[in-house]
Nucleic acid binder design. Structure first.
Lengths: 216, 216
DNA sequence: CGGGACTTTGACACCTCTCAACTCTCGTGG
DNA sequence: CCACGAGAGTTGAGAGGTGTCAAAGTCCCG
């Protein structure tokens, strides 16, 4: 963390007596697996990536966090995954005690607890995504989820900014970068999506994408 | 729920003023997806299976619950998966309010909250399991986890009772029954395990199993 | 404009799924 | 006690899809 971020944190604390705000640059690491959990982070802006690495060296993207999500829930007092910023991000920092009810803010306690339950639901949804058979089904479902949650309507089409590189999408969906790329190409060839650069996806045929997702 | 179970519940409540105990037979359904969450269940004995079904009809086993686990965490007030008993089971029943802190038992509240955090960790571990490439790696890791958590030492060998049918193992690991069966046969042929009937697995070569799990 | 990282494309092998038949296990009833 | 039957598990053959390795292409930022 640079001096700039410390300054921003202090400024934010003065502006909002309830929470400390923190800004981090793209690529910053918030915590690593096995670090002791001292704080929870409530994402305000930006996108985070939660990853774990198995003994074999393979990497799994456990989740992408978006504004409103809370990251840093402890397991045995320790973090169970690495957390990095895919984009510049701002976060509200809460003491770990706030989760356990030891803080002085019952509303915050309830909010963090609700976030933990959402986390359970999100992880189950992720499992369901991986349960799909083929690359087409998984990627189509992923894109639909992302578009519904974070897409923006522009010129009659839903537009999605993929903040993460192909490799992260692959590690999220348990497939290789090459398969992600090939499948996107298929979708483009089928007239279902358009790619503006590598990051921006324009949805041209929602029916087609849903069909591809449903045909497992 | 049969009259017998009601009687057992009442008897247990008298014996233990803090919790209502409930017994269910093998195959019983505790709740289904989209049911409103009124209670949480703390498993005392037996094994439960949590499943979800995707639109395509494919089924995913989200988790197996063992004694000490808590099931029934709500998502938007509703259950997000089906829960059935793989064996006869006994459960402590808690009001949903106990999770939210509305109850009169702070210790219970903390215990349920800790269980929610364990649930997050368990789901992430499950994701990691699915991230493995091949059937051998997934099944070997699964068996190692199960043996370490629920295996019993007998005659110098670790013995594991697989309470669930092959189909459930397959749906847990995202592979077909046939592949589960074939992989078990390979392990047996390699002298790593022995099968006593379909349920009982005897671990003959832990090193071999760990190697199979590590070789992704 | 140049360089490096990311993405896309291609060829091929391997593994898992699918479909099908057979065997085994275990509980039931004679 | 044994025989039977139904469900579960195992085994086999073939096809398709995805991983791997390799190389070319593209985008983005300095």
């Amino acid at each position: 963390m640079t001096a700039l971020h410390v300054i921003e944190t202090e400024t934010a604390r003065r502006a909002d007596h309830l929470h400390a705000l923190r800004s981090v640059p793209e690529g910053a690491t918030l915590f690593r697996e096995a670090d002791p959990v001292t704080h929870l982070f409530e994402l305000r802006t930006g996108v985070l990536r939660l990853t774990r690495v198995l003994e074999t060296g393979r990497r799994q993207v456990v989740a992408f966090a978006h504004p409103g999500d809370v990251v840093g829930f402890p397991a045995g007092g320790l973090h169970h995954c690495d957390c990095e910023a895919l984009t510049p991000a701002t976060l509200a920092v809460h003491r770990r005690a706030a989760l356990e009810g030891g803080g002085t803010d019952p509303a915050l306690h309830r909010r963090l607890q609700a976030a933990a339950l959402r986390e359970i639901a999100a992880l189950q949804d992720h499992l369901l995504l991986l349960a799909r058979k083929g690359a087409r089904g998984k990627l189509a479902s992923f894109l639909l989820n992302m578009i519904d949650a974070h897409g923006q309507a522009r010129g009659g089409h839903a537009v999605l900014e993929l903040e993460m590189p192909r490799a992260d999408i692959g590690d999220y969906l348990c497939m290789t970068v090459e398969t992600v790329s090939r499948t996107l190409t298929q979708m483009r060839a089928a007239g279902i999506i358009r790619l503006d650069g590598c990051q921006r996806i324009v949805l041209l045929d929602r029916e087609g994408l849903m069909e591809m997702a449903g045909a497992e």
